[in-house]
Design a protein around this nucleic acid. Structure first.
Length: 224
DNA sequence: GCGACAG
DNA sequence: ATCTTGTCGC
């Protein structure tokens, strides 16, 4: 991945909304290209007192779910949290961390929405467009859409509907726990995204790439 | 006008 | 995301 130029990155919600509306047309929900040998996870944690954001990128073997390598990027917090504009806060650090890996991942699991977003451009979609990597939106809670309650068994799912369109899948990744909100990010279909979440969850609620990235970024935000 | 609202 | 201990439930 080539280093990105952030000079034009928005600093206000108004600027971000304009960019988002313009980008919303270039979404890519299409089947995966090549083989998926490894899966990356990205997640961020914050140290508000010092104004710092910590992004962790981890790379796991798709076959064994073993951790292959990881990286941490630290950046100043330069954009506020605004519902619907999460990508403008988290994409820069996430891109930097992913770029520190010694090889580009075949797939990235993102902690946030993809297409299941007011304009279709959630954090996962935006990250995929900027990096060119296939991304899965895997959020712990709902942003938009309505849905039925999926059955309690692991693997049960219900379509997430927004503006009369299926924008995601409400997936019970583990029996008896709160479901995850899966949506296509970029370069992948919704069905493939759901398959990969189930294939990497390692018996827990969150997929292993996300869990590993969460642990690592949290660890660094506490220490510095 | 009132509520909802990823991380 | 972050502030924070014990505690209810499988």
């Amino acid at each position: 991945m080539t280093p990105h130029d952030w000079s034009q990155w928005p600093r206000t919600a108004e600027e971000a909304r304009a960019i988002q509306a313009q980008l919303a047309g270039s979404l890519g929900e299409r089947p995966l290209d090549g083989p998926v040998r490894n899966v990356a996870g990205v997640d961020l944690h914050y140290d508000p007192a010092r104004g710092l954001a910590f992004a962790a990128a981890v790379l796991l073997s798709a076959r064994t779910l073993e951790l292959v390598e990881s990286a941490i990027a630290v950046r100043p917090i330069d954009f506020p949290y605004v519902s619907g504009l999460l990508s403008f806060r988290e994409v820069p650090a996430a891109v930097e961390a992913l770029g520190m890996l010694t090889r580009p991942p075949d797939l990235v699991v993102v902690d946030g929405q993809g297409l299941a977003h007011p304009t279709g451009l959630g954090f996962a979609s935006h990250l995929g467009i900027i990096t060119g990597l296939p991304t899965i939106g895997c959020a712990k809670s709902r942003l938009v859409g309505t849905h039925a309650e999926p059955a309690l068994e692991r693997g049960a799912r219900a379509p997430l509907i927004h503006k009369r369109r299926i924008v995601g899948s409400v997936l019970r990744s583990k029996t008896g726990v709160r479901p995850l909100f899966i949506s296509a990010g970029h370069g992948i279909t919704l069905d493939e995204a759901v398959d990969w979440v189930l294939r990497t969850d390692g018996g827990r609620r969150l997929p292993e790439p996300t869990r590993q990235a969460d642990l690592l970024s949290r660890c660094h935000s506490l220490k510095g």
